[in-house]
Simulated assay, not measured.
Amino acid sequence: MINKKILVVDDETTLCDTLRFNLELEGYEVDTAYSAEEALAMDLSVYALVLLDVMMGEISGWQMARIMKGNPRLAGIPIIFCTAKDSEDDMVAGLDLGADDYISKPYSIRNVVARVRSVLRRASSGASVQQAGPGDDNCLITYEGLTLNSALKRCTVDGTEVRLPRKEFEMLWLMLSHRGKIFSREEFLKKIWPEEIVVVERVVDVNITRLRSKLGQYGRMIVTRSGYGYGWQD
């Protein structure tokens, strides 16, 4: 028994029931909510993953994701958007909100189950890192007044904490771990996003832009090499 609890949030009841049935066959414990309002009235902290539609009622999936990511108790819960909004801009917007994956409707149940397994596997791996003590040398990377703590998933700039979504944190950690190396967009996608998930290259550019704006004076250390990619240069 996998014993992971998943919440499916979608205003299409038939789709909710279909996803619940198939995910339960895989050994997951699954609850459903037919609106973001209903979901937000539940204790979301008990779930290992939320499958979330975008276009729903008065509170959209975008809004629900923002609410979750703004709550320290819920911010670490992985979110997969399952939606008919399938443009590149929609996908970028969803991933930029901190979602772990973005699946466009119509989709196959087999594909959804594979994505769920992948995201939960990644989340479990991250949880094992968090158990390491902050005194572990491998948990900290520093550059002058910039510090990353992988155990606490915490970034500080000159003593002030800067909140970074998971993907931004992982990209920054990768660049600081390999100062002087230029990573192509393809390398970022392969290392930060699972290989089986289709993510457009523009997502890398969006996250780099946001990182630069959040890191203050250190943002200028993230350099662009036209035609190649990005990296951290002292």
Results as ranks from 00 to 15, higher is better:
97 L>A: 06
78 P>S: 05
110 R>Y: 07
111 N>D: 13
96 D>W: 02
78 P>W: 00
103 I>D: 04
76 G>H: 13
63 Q>E: 15
88 E>G: 00
105 K>S: 06
98 G>D: 08
100 D>T: 08
113 V>H: 00
104 S>E: 08
103 I>M: 10
98 G>L: 04
123 A>V: 00
97 L>V: 10
108 S>D: 12
99 A>T: 12
81 F>T: 03
80 I>Q: 03
69 K>W: 01
80 I>N: 03
75 A>W: 00
90 D>A: 11
60 S>P: 12
87 S>F: 03
106 P>K: 03
111 N>G: 08
94 G>D: 01
113 V>Y: 00
68 M>A: 09
114 A>V: 13
63 Q>V: 00
85 K>N: 09
99 A>R: 10
77 I>D: 02
72 P>M: 09
88 E>K: 12
116 V>H: 03
102 Y>C: 08
112 V>A: 08
93 A>K: 14
105 K>M: 00
90 D>M: 05
111 N>Y: 14
72 P>L: 07
61 G>D: 02
72 P>N: 07
64 M>Y: 05
116 V>P: 10
91 M>I: 08
91 M>W: 03
79 I>D: 01
108 S>W: 02
80 I>R: 05
106 P>T: 06
62 W>D: 11
65 A>Q: 05
65 A>V: 07
66 R>P: 01
62 W>E: 11
66 R>K: 15
92 V>S: 03
72 P>A: 09
67 I>W: 03
117 R>S: 12
74 L>Q: 07
83 T>H: 05
91 M>V: 06
74 L>P: 07
120 L>A: 06
109 I>A: 07
65 A>I: 05
88 E>L: 11
80 I>C: 07
73 R>Y: 04
117 R>K: 15
